[in-house]
Amino acid sequence: MRGLLQSGGMAASLRAGFGARRAPAAPGLGLGLLLALSAAGAAGAPACDKPVYLTFDTGSQSQAELIADTLRRHHVKATFFLANEKTVRGDHSLDAAWAPFWRALAADGHAFGSHTYDHVYWQKDMAGGGMRVKPQFGAAAGQSQAWDARRYCDEIRRVDRRFQELAGRPLDPVWRAPGGKVSPNTLAAAKACGYAHVGWAQAGFSGDELSSAAWPNALLLEKSLRELRGGDIFMAHMGIWSRRDPWAPANLEPLIAGLKQRGFCFATLREHPDYQIQIKR
């Protein structure tokens, strides 16, 4: 898999890459024409050999409906990684109020994985296969805890069980660690209960977690269109609390249109060569 990252440090990587950035290239086609070409080619387009795998992690959910509508309008399938995170509605993303949203996404043909139920950050591995972790949400939010492999596996599976209650179907057997931070023990624990970890390509980091003053949307879009390659996994969130100018409203539609104009297509991780065999079992 090209450039797949299985750990944190992405913000530092981007800062290094942007440090020597060049001025954004002037696009050869205007956004209106790109969108028209994208819409015109959406129906009945032949399979291509340059897939990009869009993935979205839950977050504040401030852009959830916009993301779903944009993907639907452009006939693009993506993969969503779910945790029970606090949302801008004042609830949590796996509360019953979100069931219609998740059911609609499932009906649209998207894929789904676990992001750990309480958005649990790995801190360090321990002897015997255990690990020290810190949940961001739930009853133990903010507390550093020692878990064994079975407890970590159950945390991944909690999302699967809840998603079946909300959407009427199980997750696909993939997961993504919060922050992308994994270790030998967390990977082994997840693999033992049937889940493969999914990171992202270095070029596939949207930058939506970074300061919009330092990393404006136009710069992030230009970088993605310039650097993404066929087979890359792209990662963004369904809303970030700290970013003043949210990424998705400005960038998702022109990213899709621009990549299509360059001959790329989109697929879920069910079609990814590293995951499709496990998912289809």
Rank of each mutant, 00 (worst) to 15 (best):
L5H: 07
L5M: 11
L5I: 08
Q6D: 11
A11W: 01
A16C: 10
F18I: 03
G19S: 15
A20Q: 14
A20W: 11
R22D: 12
A23E: 15
P24C: 06
G28T: 11
L31I: 07
L31D: 07
S38H: 09
A40F: 13
G44P: 00
P46V: 07
C48R: 13
D49K: 12
P51C: 05
Y53R: 02
T55M: 09
D57I: 04
T58F: 14
G59F: 05
S62Q: 12
A64P: 11
L66W: 10
L66P: 01
I67V: 15
R72V: 09
R72H: 15
R73Y: 11
R73L: 15
R73H: 12
V76C: 04
K77D: 07
F80H: 08
V88M: 05
R89S: 15
G90Y: 13
G90D: 04
H92I: 04
A97C: 13
A97R: 12
F101A: 07
F101R: 09
G109Y: 12
A111R: 06
F112T: 10
F112S: 03
F112N: 03
G113Y: 06
Y117M: 13
V120Y: 04
K124M: 01
D125T: 08
M126Q: 09
R132A: 14
K134D: 00
G138T: 08
A139H: 00
A140F: 02
A141D: 00
D148F: 05
D148Y: 05
R150E: 10
R151A: 13
Y152V: 01
C153I: 00
E155H: 07
V159I: 06
R161K: 09
Q164A: 13
L166Q: 09
A167F: 11
P170H: 06
P170A: 12
N185W: 02
A189W: 02
A190T: 03
K191E: 14
Y195H: 01
A196L: 13
H197V: 09
V198C: 09
G204Q: 09
F205Y: 12
F205R: 09
G207K: 09
G207L: 12
G207I: 11
G207N: 12
D208P: 00
S212W: 03
P216V: 08
L220E: 11
G231H: 05
D232T: 04
D232Y: 06
I233K: 06
A236S: 15
M238G: 13
S242T: 11
R243Y: 08
D245F: 13
W247V: 14
A248Q: 01
A250N: 06
L252E: 10
L252D: 08
P254M: 14
L255M: 14
I256G: 04
G258E: 05
K260T: 06
Q261W: 10
H272T: 03
I277R: 15
Q278A: 15
I279E: 00
K280F: 01
